[in-house]
Measured scan of single mutants.
Amino acid sequence: LVRYRTISKIPQITLNFVDLKGDPFLASPTSDREIIAPKIKERTHNVTEKVTQVLSLGADVLPEYKLQAPRIHRWTILHYSPFKAVWDWLILLLVIYTAVFTPYSAAFLLKETEEGPPATECGYACQPLAVVDLIVDIMFIVDILINFRTTYVNANEEVVSHPGRIAVHYFKGWFLIDMVAAIPFDLLIFGSGSEELIGLLKTARLLRLVRVARKLDRYSEYGAAVLFLLMCTFALIAHWLACIWYAIGNMEQPHMDSRIGWLHNLGDQIGKPYNSSGLGGPSIKDKYVTALYFTFSSLTSVGFGNVSPNTNSEKIFSICVMLIGSLMYASIFGNVSAIIQRLYSGTARYHTQMLRVREFIRFHQIPNPLRQRLEEYFQHAWSYTNGIDMNAVLKGFPECLQADICLHLNRSLLQHCKPFRGATKGCLRALAMKFKTTHAPPGDTLVHAGDLLTALYFISRGSIEILRGDVVVAILGKNDIFGEPLNLYARPGKSNGDVRALTYCDLHKIHR
């Protein structure tokens, strides 16, 4: 019993810090008490220290592992850092350059016999395009090294910054494609005289377009951006097909006994025919423009016929181009109408809503002055909100995010209106959640004399007048207030005048 009563005193000691020596009952000389009392004092002292730490809000209350900052290894790049964003855009520009100039170089340097010394005699450094290609190869190699040090988000939505895990993730992902696209074939085969082989191998750079397509997928929600990307894709495919079309004609031209190829026909049409040795002929500019003209006309199913396939190889390629053109029509131009419709969806919704308003007016036989006010209010409210119901949009977000959005939407009023000066951010967040926005066209009466005042109004834009009878008592403008002081009276009061809008007004109100 003594032991039980001794232990039962522990909660009292913990909360009230009572010393055991003052209790005459606990001072009985028993061996059990002498053993338990020192333990009680020690526990009391420890609990006292913990309570003191909690009340003082000291940093040592938290466990040590929670006080440590997340460790980022040296030379690790955050995937959302500004440097990584700028670097990704730079790589994107280099990939676009590669997609345009690599097929052009591979096709127009394929057994090209233009006048001038061969590239091997001039030297590697004197070729501007080769120098640019070398810079692109170096940048792609540097990009691989950067990807080995860039964080990523795993399946659990955690940012991984450990170098080993980053390397394994990159090896399992895009490393092989990036490595093949970054191989400097110019340096590996330079001086061997195989410019045709170098041009063909350099087309491996186009593998990076797969990554670019995935990154550009984030802009699919913007109709104008999608339309622009589709047109660029169409032009890029036409450019690639033009390079292939020229390569076919250029390879067949020296081996044909009869002059029936499209390059021969082009030379005869523009007065620059090929001679018996295969030299001469149109310039590279004429060849490229004509090839691009043929691919565009074939892809769009126009086909004027002034550039036509004559050999079997050219006919087979033309059939493939027609098939590609039909697929592009289905996948690209078939979506253009939907994209344009999405661009004008706001206008369509406006006309639909206006039609419903006019049908309501016609069905209920609203008189002319009231009908005009109804239409003007709808037009003004639509121009202010673009038909978007803010309350319906915010309803799907958590309250903390709703408060931040409301604070942002009402920031101008909260910053410049005098009653809100000096208020804490928590108070402003709470008030912003209570605001209701209303609009009024010129001549609209917001409050009639004798109406119950259940709200306090803040003028965000425009001006109003307060009338008693036919006498203008006051004219209020931006950041002015009218209405009933909230919670100042037990019952809502009545208006002693009319409140009429002089201009288009936007008002925020808080109800009782």
Results as ranks from 00 to 15, higher is better:
271 G>W: 01
348 A>Y: 07
439 H>N: 08
386 N>H: 04
72 I>R: 13
258 S>G: 14
191 G>M: 03
107 A>R: 01
257 D>E: 11
225 A>E: 04
232 C>H: 01
343 L>I: 05
439 H>Q: 15
397 F>S: 02
364 H>F: 04
186 D>I: 09
391 N>A: 15
408 H>S: 01
313 S>P: 14
130 A>K: 15
157 E>M: 15
270 I>K: 01
219 Y>S: 05
310 N>T: 15
191 G>R: 13
296 F>N: 01
146 I>P: 01
88 D>L: 01
223 G>I: 03
400 C>H: 08
433 M>E: 01
73 H>N: 05
195 E>F: 15
246 Y>D: 01
257 D>P: 14
410 N>G: 03
401 L>G: 02
120 T>M: 11
400 C>P: 09
334 G>Y: 03
237 I>T: 09
161 S>K: 05
388 I>F: 15
172 K>A: 04
419 P>N: 06
305 G>E: 01
207 L>E: 01
365 Q>H: 14
324 I>D: 02
198 I>G: 09
353 Q>V: 03
240 W>V: 01
445 T>R: 04
209 L>N: 01
117 P>H: 07
142 V>R: 01
308 S>K: 01
287 K>Y: 03
367 P>I: 01
109 L>D: 09
211 R>N: 08
165 R>G: 05
156 N>G: 13
74 R>L: 05
367 P>E: 15
172 K>W: 04
294 F>L: 01
163 P>Q: 04
224 A>F: 14
219 Y>D: 01
323 L>R: 01
327 L>R: 02
362 R>L: 03
441 P>H: 09
231 M>F: 11
235 A>L: 09
75 W>I: 05
332 I>Y: 06
214 R>G: 08
106 A>T: 04
281 G>L: 01
220 S>W: 12
170 Y>A: 01
416 H>F: 12
109 L>G: 13
369 P>E: 09
94 L>N: 05
398 P>W: 03
72 I>N: 03
378 F>D: 04
84 K>M: 01
127 Q>D: 14
299 L>C: 01
353 Q>S: 09
68 Q>E: 06
101 F>V: 14
437 T>W: 11
397 F>N: 01
237 I>N: 01
323 L>V: 10
190 F>W: 13
217 D>Q: 08
200 L>G: 04
250 N>E: 15
434 K>W: 01
298 S>W: 01
224 A>I: 11
144 I>P: 01
380 H>W: 15
395 K>G: 11
294 F>I: 01
414 L>E: 02
298 S>K: 03
326 S>G: 04
289 V>L: 01
356 R>N: 13
403 A>S: 06
299 L>T: 01
375 E>Q: 09
281 G>H: 01
444 D>G: 10
443 G>R: 03
242 A>C: 01
409 L>N: 09
214 R>W: 04
324 I>A: 01
206 L>S: 05
284 I>C: 01
